[in-house]
Simulated scan of single mutants.
Amino acid sequence: MPGTALAVGVVACTAALAVGLCSMAGAAAFGQRLAATADAAVLAAADAASGAVDGVPCERAAELAATGDAVVADCRVDGLVATVTVSARFGVLVVSASARAGPPPAAE
């Protein structure tokens, strides 16, 4: 019977490790998806700021963030440079990602 207790312990540890690793993989995938949503939202805001598309930059960012099941937590436009932070819930946590877009800085 001592071998049975050891086997149960090994199986329980293996199961706990597998669940933990799957949770971490899910969080990593969620983070990448949220970063992509932030990138798309900031590009929409920068396009609106430059006049390439119609609309208010931060409203355009919010529209795109909503398609990725996220909300715009912060949106700033300085000239043609837009900075957007989006957030979404992953389980009980609120996760955020930021992105910045605009023309390249002038060469000196």
Rank of each mutant, 00 (worst) to 15 (best):
V92L: 05
R89N: 10
V77A: 07
S87E: 15
G102S: 03
V81I: 15
D78Y: 07
T67H: 11
A45K: 00
D54E: 13
G51Y: 06
Q32G: 11
A40R: 00
C22T: 08
A99S: 11
S98T: 13
A99L: 01
S98K: 01
S50Q: 09
P103G: 03
C22V: 08
A62D: 13
A49Q: 10
A27I: 05
G102D: 06
V81H: 01
V53L: 09
A45W: 03
G31Q: 12
A62Q: 13
A62M: 06
A16G: 08
P104G: 04
T37M: 03
G91M: 04
S96I: 01
D39A: 10
G55R: 05
A28W: 11
S98Q: 12
A16I: 13
D69E: 15
G55K: 04
V92D: 09
V81N: 02
R100K: 01
D47I: 00
D78G: 03
A28T: 03
Q32E: 13
V72P: 02
R76N: 02
C58Y: 12
Q32L: 15
L93H: 10
D78H: 05
A97F: 00
M24W: 06
A44R: 00
S23G: 12
G68S: 08
A101E: 02
G55Y: 12
E59V: 12
G51Q: 12
A44M: 06
E59M: 11
A38D: 15
A44C: 14
A48P: 11
A46N: 04
A62P: 09
M24L: 14
G55H: 07
A73N: 08
